[in-house]
């Protein structure tokens, strides 16, 4: 069945390999456009249909021209590990592992990212 992906994690989608991909360079969460901007969202949804229509070979990526806006600070923020985070993340890792162990021994382990 012909498919198109509309998404914002370019490296992840292209690493996977998909037939058709419309890439919107936005923070993860709103791949169709900024909240409440109906004109942008409608245009991007239409562009996804264009990609479905025009692609002739797999791994066909198109990047939308729309930008999230002037504030681009989100690019640096997401999952960024800074020096001051090291102790907090090490603790978080230990807590996650011990929680999983407890759930596993209670037979409630879940296979999930």
């Amino acid at each position: 069945m012909p498919t198109v992906i509309l998404g914002s994690a370019r490296d992840v989608v292209e690493h996977c390999g998909v037939p058709r991909f419309l890439f919107t360079d936005f923070p993860l969460g709103n791949p169709c456009g900024t909240p409440y901007d109906r004109d942008m969202q409608y245009a991007i949804t239409g562009l996804a249909l264009d990609v479905l229509d025009r692609a002739k070979t797999p791994r066909h990526t198109v990047q939308s021209d729309y930008s999230w806006g002037d504030d681009q600070s989100w690019r640096e923020g997401y999952l960024q590990v800074r020096g001051e985070d090291a102790a907090r993340l090490a603790l978080l890792g230990r807590e996650n592992r011990s929680r999983r162990e407890r759930l596993k021994s209670a037979g409630k382990g879940r296979d999930d990212a």
């Binding site: 069945m1 198109v4 992906i5 998404g7 994690a9 791949p31 479905l52």
Partner: peptide
Amino acid sequence: DIVLLVPL
């Protein structure tokens, strides 16, 4: 006939 996938 066709599918649009929109992952977050």
